[in-house]
């Protein structure tokens, strides 16, 4: 993939392998391949949805892109600059450009700070505002996410789950970043609150010209919000495609299974029988060849031997399968 002018982030051969502690009685040290050789482009102004099941490496990939986790191999280019080559000062400056929203707002907000303290911190750390100016910026942020300026004096526990997620989003936006990685931003919320927060994410994107990497396991959420969808399986990206028409074939057999596994919220349409048998293999011992082959209904002999490369099968549609 060649970075273009509209590329905001480019991940190249990005890997994160963890050495897992020796087992009982000196069994061998093993390597857990959380993310393995991922190439991924995030374009300016888009919402890129990143889906996959637990343990597929989607959250780790998000953290690698923000350099909250150091990669084992590969690099991340942010606006063409290699993030790995930056010194502390440069990295701090870059961090203003990229922020994260976590899944659980209760555990990601400091319970001993008021909301004003939490939202004011970024300004103080980066020396961008002081005193009254901080208060004014905090009030603006609270209004932008649908809370009231007088909420600044309260503590996180005094808010509902949906309101806490609004605070988490406000904190991410404080420094006017270009990129926001939202890691399961609505999965801890009740259905009615989920819709409110999804609307807020759409609104803020418009208002601040944000680019999102939206990490989520719920395909209906991703399909609604994203412009493009990337699907991960066992540490690898297996498909990247426009969200519009994502449910149209051709697609990767795993993406298809993921799509058809979700129960349909319409009793007149029947969910297909389960497409996949068995469980995801362990990232400690990923299968050889295509990592999906043990569960794939279409697997052939070649899939056992050779891992398919992620290649363009239609304009703007990448897929890693021998048969697409």
């Amino acid at each position: 993939m060649i970075p273009t002018a509209e590329t905001l982030v480019q991940a190249q051969g990005l890997s994160k392998h963890y050495r897992v502690g020796a087992g009982f009685l000196g069994s061998q040290r093993r390597t857990l391949q959380a993310v393995d050789q991922v190439d991924l482009e995030i374009r300016c102004g888009e919402v890129l949805g990143l889906v996959g099941e637990s343990g597929c490496g989607k959250s780790t990939l998000g953290r690698l892109i923000l350099r909250l986790t150091e990669p084992s191999a590969g690099k991340v280019l942010f606006e063409g600059r290699d993030v790995g080559g930056l010194d502390r000062g440069q990295l701090r400056a870059l961090r203003r450009q990229m922020q994260i929203v976590f899944q659980d707002p209760m555990t990601s907000l400091n319970p001993r700070l008021t909301v004003g303290g939490i939202l004011g911190e970024p300004f103080r750390i980066h020396g961008l505002a002081q005193g009254r100016a901080v208060e004014r910026r905090v009030a603006e942020l609270l209004e932008a996410v649908g809370l009231r300026p007088d909420h600044a004096g309260r503590y996180p526990h005094q808010f509902s789950g949906g309101q806490r997620q609004r605070i988490g989003i406000a904190r991410a936006l404080a420094l006017r970043p270009k990129l926001v990685v939202a890691d399961e931003p609505v999965s801890a919320l009740d259905v009615s609150i989920q819709a409110q927060v999804m609307n807020l994410l759409l609104e803020l994107r418009e208002k601040f010209g944000l680019t999102y990497l939206l990490v989520a396991h719920d395909l209906t959420v991703v399909h609604h919000l994203a412009d493009r969808i990337a699907v991960m399986y066992l540490g690898r990206v297996v498909e990247v495609a426009p969200a519009e028409g994502f449910d149209q074939p051709p697609m990767h057999p795993y993406s298809a299974a993921l799509f058809h596994s979700a129960p349909i919220a319409d009793p007149t349409r029947q969910t297909r029988p389960p497409a996949l048998m068995g469980d995801v293999a362990s990232p400690l011992a990923p299968p050889p060849g295509c990592r999906f082959h043990p569960r794939c209904p279409e697997a052939q002999e070649i899939c056992h031997r050779q891992g398919p490369a992620l290649r363009e099968i239609a304009p703007g549609h990448l897929c890693a399968c021998h048969f697409r």
């Binding site: 259905v191 609104e203 209906t220 399909h223 919220a265």
Partner: peptide, 25 residues
């Protein structure tokens, strides 16, 4: 009606505002 309407899977169009139930329980 509100619970059904705010499901993204039942939204008439992708990327549009979802109907919501205002406030919290």
């Amino acid at each position: 009606a509100g619970l059904l309407a705010c499901l993204p899977a039942r939204a008439p169009r992708r990327g549009q505002r979802l109907p919501t139930i205002k406030g919290v329980v």
